[in-house]
Simulated scan of single mutants.
Amino acid sequence: MGQEFEAIVGLERDALTEIMNIGVSRAASNLRKMIGDQVHLSVPSIEVVNQRRAARLISEREISELIAVRQDFNGPFSGRALLIFPETNSLELVRAVTGDALSADEVLEMENEALAETGNIILNSCLATMANMLKRSLTMTIPEILRGSGESLFEVTDETPAEGLVLFLYIDFAVRRRDIRGYIAMMMDIPSLEILRELLAEFIARVVGDDGADA
Rank of each mutant, 00 (worst) to 15 (best):
Arg32Ser: 13
Arg32Phe: 00
Arg32Gln: 08
Arg32Tyr: 00
Lys33Val: 04
Lys33Gly: 02
Lys33Leu: 05
Lys33Asn: 04
Lys33Pro: 00
Met34Leu: 12
Met34Lys: 10
Met34Ser: 06
Met34Ala: 08
Met34Tyr: 06
Met34Asp: 07
Met34Glu: 11
Met34Cys: 01
Ile35Asn: 06
Ile35Asp: 03
Ile35Met: 10
Ile35Gly: 07
Ile35Val: 11
Gly36Gln: 09
Gly36Lys: 13
Gly36Ala: 08
Gly36Val: 08
Asp37Ser: 15
Asp37Gln: 14
Asp37Thr: 14
Asp37Val: 05
Asp37Ile: 06
Asp37His: 15
Asp37Leu: 12
Gln38Asn: 10
Gln38Glu: 06
Gln38Thr: 09
Gln38Gly: 06
Gln38Ser: 12
Val39His: 14
Val39Leu: 07
Val39Phe: 08
Val39Thr: 12
Val39Ser: 11
Val39Gly: 09
Val39Lys: 13
His40Ile: 12
His40Val: 13
His40Lys: 14
His40Arg: 14
Leu41Phe: 07
Leu41Arg: 12
Leu41Cys: 04
Leu41Met: 14
Leu41Trp: 00
Leu41Pro: 00
Leu41Ile: 15
Ser42Ala: 07
Ser42Asn: 11
Ser42Leu: 01
Ser42Asp: 02
Ser42Gly: 09
Ser42Arg: 14
Val43Ile: 15
Val43Cys: 10
Val43Pro: 11
Val43Asp: 07
Val43Trp: 06
Pro44Arg: 15
Pro44Ile: 10
Pro44Val: 09
Pro44Trp: 12
Ser45Val: 09
Ser45Met: 10
Ser45Thr: 13
Ser45Asn: 13
Ile46Gly: 06
Ile46Pro: 05
Ile46Cys: 08
Ile46Glu: 07
Ile46Lys: 12
Ile46His: 07
Ile46Leu: 15
Ile46Trp: 02
Ile46Tyr: 08
Glu47Ser: 14
Glu47Asp: 14
Glu47Trp: 07
Glu47Arg: 15
Val48Arg: 11
Val48Met: 12
Val48Gln: 08
Val48Cys: 12
Val48Phe: 06
Val48Asp: 03
Val48Ser: 03
Val49Lys: 10
Val49Asp: 05
Val49Gln: 05
Val49Thr: 10
Asn50Met: 00
Asn50Lys: 12
Asn50Cys: 09
Asn50Ile: 01
Asn50Gly: 10
Gln51Pro: 11
Gln51Glu: 11
Gln51Ala: 15
Gln51Arg: 15
Arg52Phe: 08
Arg52His: 08
Arg52Thr: 10
Arg52Tyr: 04
Arg52Pro: 02
Arg53Phe: 00
Arg53Tyr: 00
Arg53Met: 13
Arg53His: 04
Ala54Leu: 04
Ala54Gln: 04
Ala54Lys: 02
Ala55Arg: 05
Ala55Thr: 09
Ala55Ser: 13
Ala55Lys: 03
Arg56His: 07
Arg56Leu: 11
Arg56Gln: 14
Arg56Cys: 01
Leu57Trp: 00
Leu57Pro: 03
Leu57Ile: 13
Leu57Ser: 10
Leu57Asp: 02
Ile58Arg: 02
Ile58Thr: 05
Ile58Cys: 01
Ile58Val: 14
Ser59Pro: 02
Ser59Leu: 05
Ser59Val: 02
Ser59Met: 02
Ser59Thr: 07
Ser59Cys: 03
Glu60Ala: 09
Glu60Trp: 01
Glu60Lys: 08
Glu60Phe: 03
Glu60Gly: 09
Glu60Cys: 07
Arg61Pro: 03
Arg61Lys: 13
Glu62Gly: 03
Glu62Cys: 04
Glu62Thr: 10
Glu62His: 04
Ile63Ala: 12
Ile63Gly: 09
Ile63Thr: 13
